[in-house]
Computed example of a mutant assay.
Amino acid sequence: MTIDAARGRPPGTVAESPPELVRLLTPDGERVEHPDYDVGLTAEEIKGLYRDLVIVRRLDAEALALARQGELAVWPSLRGQEAAQVGSARALMPGDMAFPSYREHGVAWCRGVDRVRVLCSFRGINHAGWDPREHNLHVPTIVIGSQVLHATGYAMGVQRDGTEDAVIAYFGDGASSEGDVNEAFVWAAVQNAPIVFFCQNNQWAISEPAERQSRIPLYRRADGFGFPGVRVDGNDVLACLAVTRKALDNARSGQGPTLVEAFTYRMGAHTTTDDPNRYRLPAEVEAWQLKDPVERVRAYLLKSGTATGEFFDEVEAEAQDAGSDLRRQCLALPDPDLDELWDHVYAAEHSLLADERARFASYLGSFDEVSR
């Protein structure tokens, strides 16, 4: 069976973007108006978003190279999804709490997480990487969809505390089929929780296409739970910012949850353990390259005369320096004490844990005896 046949399309065809997208910036860099959404950004603020996109892409590329060279155990690249992450994260207020999955490196950048700390868990240095309370960004979640239920519980707590903060939960199209995500929708709806469900529909849940996840566009699932859903061009950083900002404002004002589906594309592999050439067509990738989120902002800045070549050179130099610094810091990270493996497993030590710790220490000690 061909890839196209497995996806239910005629052989040799490529899926097109659906028409019902909120878009403020076309793929060729033209600004368009939308009756319900506007960002109202200054030229300098748009240039700042471009800087975010370029640096996030460079850091991701460096981490991918580190993984390919054996310096990281694995890496889930975000290439192609930069606008969805930067746009939504820049809509957050300082007190808002974000719950990521394992691919939201762009969100971590926008929340001020030290670039090398994003790599720590992928290098096996520690369990998480950063203090969630310091950045109002929860640690990465590997268990698919579980963070969405955690985020809903947190939002219910925010609601009961009477603050004006909101919560955002990031997940992918594949996670939308998980029980935890749908349970979160139920709880958020009936509790009118101040939360935004931000689904990055990158078309592929590893090798499973989006059309095998749902017979309707994902954002329309919100209708069945009783709250609004909206689909945004996930490669348009301006639209992602505008849509997320409005959804967060609605959450803060007591209007409850919103499901945002950012229609985007994962340009690379699911992780460094995946080979996307086995399940998707090169023509599909090529079609999405024409919708590149970084290049469309660059095109807008050039066409509008907002930025000069000097600006682009400065951003590129800064991004290159950031990538080089990330590599240097990553390679300088100390190896962890293996005994730390047992820390924070339970709230208090007990006999089973102590026994396992002792047996593991004995096992490690056996290598010292062999070397002698």
Rank of each mutant, 00 (worst) to 15 (best):
D4I: 04
A5R: 14
A5E: 14
A6S: 13
P11A: 13
V22P: 11
L25G: 08
T26K: 12
T26I: 12
G29R: 10
R31S: 09
V32S: 08
H34M: 06
H34G: 06
D36A: 15
G40M: 05
T42D: 10
T42F: 04
E44N: 08
E44T: 12
Y50E: 04
L53R: 07
L53K: 03
V56D: 05
A61D: 12
E62D: 03
A73M: 09
V74I: 15
V74K: 01
S77D: 04
G87M: 04
S88N: 07
G95S: 14
G95I: 07
F99P: 06
E104D: 11
G106V: 08
G112D: 10
H127I: 10
W130A: 11
R133E: 15
N136G: 06
H150E: 13
A155S: 08
R160W: 15
D161T: 00
D161V: 02
T163L: 12
T163G: 15
E164C: 07
V167P: 09
A169Y: 07
A169D: 03
D180M: 03
V181N: 05
N182Q: 15
A188E: 12
N192W: 08
A193R: 03
P217K: 12
L218Y: 03
F225I: 03
F227M: 02
G229F: 10
V230H: 09
V232R: 08
A239E: 09
L241P: 04
A247Y: 11
A251H: 11
R252V: 11
R252E: 06
R252W: 09
P257W: 05
E261Q: 09
T264Q: 10
T272D: 02
T273W: 02
N277E: 13
N277V: 05
L281T: 14
E284N: 05
L301Q: 12
K303F: 06
A307D: 06
T308H: 10
D313M: 04
E314D: 14
E316Q: 13
A317L: 14
A319N: 06
R327M: 00
Q329C: 05
Q329W: 00
L341S: 12
W342M: 07
W342R: 05
D343L: 12
D343W: 14
H344Y: 13
A347G: 02
R357L: 01
F360K: 05
S362Q: 13
G365L: 06
